[in-house]
Amino acid sequence: MFKTAVAGLSKVANAAAIAANALGTLVVLALVLVVNYDVVARGVFSAPFRGAYEVVQFSVVLIVFLQLPDVVRVDRLTRSDGFLNVLHHRRPGLTASIRRIINAISAIFMALIAYIVWPEFIEMYHTKDYFGVPGIFTAPWWPIKLVIAASATLCSLMFALKVISAQDRPHLIRAPEHDEPKT
């Protein structure tokens, strides 16, 4: 019963992380296009896009927090696990416990972030706080806070699931972008 619940939750969480990841990926593309549009509009047509600066800032935050849960999912968060890899060969049980503890700490830390950012999102949703200069370009703050809060919540959940499943494995390096294409 517990096992099926965990498996189900884990499926949902993974699906959410992958979806957010795809969305964040589109933001990367949008960033390339927006900045190039501004460069051309300014240089060739003397008509710079007035919101370029804000849009760039906005998209960086979106990229980071939309992608973070997926980074956690594939275990690519920066770490130095040389010691754990060595230990794994001698004391696999102990190593698994240490990994559980590390994931538990991570879950708590991400939960703290979620806990402090949610109220901020609610508040800014109501006050309609914006950044930028009125009459030039403004954008509301709340979507940023929403993405951060949701992302931290999802990351916390992913770490918690890793505690239960204890499934992260030692690797020399995780850089799938340089893997040979699987044929």
Binding site: N21, T25, L29, V60, V71, P181
Partner: peptide, 18 residues
């Protein structure tokens, strides 16, 4: 390959900026 490059860009950016 294009989509993978975009995905990886996102992963690397998120890891570094976090």
């Amino acid at each position: 390959g294009f989509w993978e490059a975009l995905l990886e860009t996102g992963h690397i950016t998120a890891a570094i900026l976090f």
